[in-house]
């Protein structure tokens, strides 16, 4: 039992379960699913579908945070991606796939590129991540508005809707995209040494360099990946509504994504990261939103509830809090905290 409680995933999964059960309490058919028009529907599918962009962005954010960084620009990159995608197909009609591929290629390329810009500032110029990405966060939204001319641009090109609204094997296509990116991320980080390198760089960049790791390239890569993920997320979001909105697309996403990562157990201090935890974190945030809508609490409370969940999860993860309230996770945590800066324990 102790091992289970100690597991990083225990608390996030518990919270997710709790939220879902609360739903079941209000709506007994909450867990039911049915096939309608060859499409699997149900609240759980809905959560997955709507949560896909956040999951994607959180995955990118996880790797960035693991290197002791942070990417505040994802919200703006989402807006840019949507704007580029939608503007590329704005004049297209019919069903030819050319414009679609063009849109996908162009936005992902540019988003990966601007992610790389963040990465260069952080790894080569040595700017703190929060500042480096703040630049793009502010300027990026301006650029997105510039692309769309400050208007909401509507798309009338059908294939574009498939990205965010299409179905494959009775499931929403966006779930596949998120699952695919998740799988790639897990494979890359856990089946190769990349994960070890990322954790190493996040925990001690100087020592990592002296151990022969190319810290700068690792950092550059995670920011590019984060940009890429935000790009994919942006395309899904823009395709969902078949339009591009430079002003509001992706607003607050950076915060939700950081929340998802933290809820998932990855420390903002870098080092160890937990991709599965992140996905659960993102699902918690999404189900929270869904729950609030579905059980008829005024939508305005969403923010309050979100704030409370953040606090609860953070407190549960704080060794100091656990010690004071539950009496376990004892002194070890305190020793680590104190030991980190000054002398070692012994």
């Amino acid at each position: 039992m102790k091992a289970i409680i100690k597991s990083r995933l225990f608390w996030p999964i518990l919270v997710l379960m709790l939220i879902l059960l609360i739903n079941l309490f209000f709506d007994s058919s909450f867990f039911s699913m049915e096939i309608r028009n060859g499409r699997l529907t149900g609240s759980l599918i809905d959560i997955l579908n709507r949560g896909a962009p956040l999951i994607l962005i959180s995955i990118g954010m996880t790797l960035v945070i693991a290197t002791k960084g942070i990417d505040l620009s994802v919200g703006s990159v989402i807006a840019m991606s949507g704007a580029i995608g939608a503007m590329t197909v704005a004049s297209a009609d019919g069903t030819g796939l050319g414009p679609l591929l063009m849109a996908i290629g162009l936005s992902l390329l540019i988003c990966t590129f601007v992610g790389g810009w963040n990465g260069l500032l952080v790894s080569r110029v040595g700017v703190q991540p929060i500042v480096a990405t703040l630049i793009l966060m502010v300027a990026g939204r301006g650029v997105a508005q510039l692309i769309t001319g400050g208007q909401i641009t509507t798309v009338y090109y059908d294939p574009y809707s498939f990205i965010g609204g299409g179905y494959l094997l009775a499931l929403p296509f966006s779930i596949f995209i998120a699952a695919f990116v998740f799988l790639i991320a897990v494979l890359l980080t856990r089946k190769t040494a990349l994960g070890l390198f990322i954790e190493s760089v996040g925990s001690n960049p100087d020592a990592s360099r002296l151990a022969g790791i190319n810290s700068k390239n690792i950092m550059l890569m995670v920011y590019m990946f984060s940009g890429f993920c935000a790009g994919v997320g942006g395309l899904i979001l823009s395709s969902n509504v078949m339009s591009a909105d430079g002003n509001n697309a992706g607003l607050w996403f950076e915060l939700d994504a950081i929340l998802a990562v933290v809820i998932g157990g990855t420390s903002l201090m870098g080092g160890r990261f937990y991709l599965t935890g992140t996905v659960i974190g993102a699902l918690i945030i999404q189900s929270l939103t869904t729950t609030i809508y579905s059980i008829g609490i005024p939508a305005e409370t969403n923010l309050v509830v979100k704030a409370l969940v953040v606090l609860i999860v953070c407190l549960l993860q704080s060794p100091e809090f656990r010690r004071k309230v539950f009496g376990f996770g004892k002194v070890k945590g305190a020793g680590e905290q104190k030991g980190k800066e000054g002398a070692t324990l012994l």
Binding site: L259, V262, L268, M269, L308, V310, L311, C314, L315, E320
Partner: peptide, 12 residues
């Protein structure tokens, strides 16, 4: 008191 990160707490 709980050694939480300012970023997260003020976000909440």
């Amino acid at each position: 008191f709980y050694n939480l990160q300012p970023f997260i707490v003020t976000l909440a």
